[in-house]
Amino acid sequence: MTFLMGPALLFCPADRPERFHKAAQRSDAVILDLEDAVAPADKKRARGAILAQLGTKGEVPELEPSRTIIRVNPAGTEDFEKDLHCLAHTPYRTVMLAKAEDPSQLARLEGYNVIALCETAAGVLNAPAIAAAPNVVALMWGAEDLLASLGGTSSRDGSGRYRDVALHARSTVLLAARAHGKEAVDSVYVDIPDLSGLAAEAADAVASGFGSKACIHPTQVAVIRAAYAPTEAEVAAANQLLAAARASGSGVFQHEGKMVDGPVLRHAEATLRRAAGQVPPNAL
């Protein structure tokens, strides 16, 4: 199964089945979370909620497998094994592995498309090897779990800017994913009311090369989609640049006073793909 990842991926606690379909309808893909969003005492009920909605008719239709991700608990835990047993009885074949730290962990997920969540020091340092695993289709990074693994207290400073170590992890995961032709997913923005801050961070994710951004509240979806949708002026400029390239017939030329070569043209092509809602070359 090919998983077509849209720009806004919305987390939904797996023990809240009344939210499943609303989350799916309001986002490009829904992440049913069996890990951090569910209290340990409620994980069994969460797995049961995923199974209970399968094949139900009428008010609660089955979630679309190509737009559904299941975040499972870390490999090596008892809950991970129970999560896999649950998934075996579902049509869902795209999973997000929490706290991925080593490529050997991916062997237990053979047959699944895996979004490896690098959110510990070991996971970030091993991101290139994890990205190389054949069943990994994307890497995502997580800021708060990363800082917790380091013994820190917050991923951001008083101004709201990511601390240097978090920025380093973000870049490392992006580079590892793209170097292996895999998708890259930017971390969530936890300050839900701060939509302007989210807009700025999502715009940076687009410009940096992240194919999508995860979010934790439906109000964040529109902001992320807007960041990934080029403006009419950007589309017009991209079309004009590509037309000029065709007319030039040269590898390097000047356009509106600026030097243009292959990488600049690929930027323009990426803008037009986003405008058309097409999946980028490295997508799943």
Rank of each mutant, 00 (worst) to 15 (best):
L9Y: 10
V279H: 15
G211I: 02
P193A: 15
D204T: 14
L175H: 09
C86V: 08
A275D: 08
E232M: 03
L109N: 02
L106Q: 02
A184D: 05
V235G: 10
D79A: 00
L272R: 07
H21F: 05
A227N: 10
R266G: 06
A244H: 02
S27L: 11
K182D: 05
R274W: 08
R19C: 13
G123Y: 03
L284T: 11
V114T: 15
T219G: 08
W141L: 02
E78T: 12
P7T: 12
A226W: 05
S171L: 14
A233C: 06
R273N: 06
S104P: 06
V124M: 00
H85R: 09
A100V: 01
G111L: 04
Q25C: 11
T77E: 03
Q278N: 11
Y228M: 09
K82V: 08
A276K: 14
P103L: 03
K22Q: 10
D42K: 03
P65L: 12
R71C: 00
A245M: 13
G142L: 06
A203Y: 06
T153V: 11
E18A: 13
F253K: 05
V114C: 02
A131D: 07
N126M: 11
I224A: 00
S154E: 14
K99P: 01
Y228T: 08
A244F: 00
H255R: 08
D33H: 01
G160W: 08
G209N: 10
E119S: 01
T56I: 08
R19E: 15
L54Q: 14
P280K: 05
N73R: 03
D102E: 14
T77D: 09
F80T: 04
A75V: 09
A143T: 04
R71S: 05
A202M: 11
E64V: 06
I216R: 11
V95A: 04
D83T: 00
A179H: 10
C118V: 05
D15H: 02
E234G: 07
L198D: 03
V279E: 11
A75G: 11
L63K: 04
A129R: 00
K44S: 14
I115Y: 09
L9H: 12
Y112T: 10
V95Q: 07
G257R: 08
A247N: 12
M1G: 15
L175Y: 09
L167V: 13
P218W: 13
R26F: 07
A132M: 11
A37Q: 08
W141I: 05
F210N: 09
A107D: 12
F20Y: 05
M140I: 14
A122I: 14
L32I: 06
Y162L: 13
A133P: 00
V221F: 07
E119G: 02
A275R: 07
A202P: 04
Y162N: 12
A268I: 12
S155R: 09
D102Q: 05
M259Y: 09
G257H: 08
G48H: 04
E18C: 07
K43S: 04
T172W: 09
L32Q: 00
E110R: 01
I31C: 04
A8I: 12
A244V: 13
L139I: 01
L87M: 06
K22E: 11
Q53Y: 07
A200K: 15
E119V: 01
E59W: 02
P103A: 15
V206T: 13
L125S: 12
K213R: 13
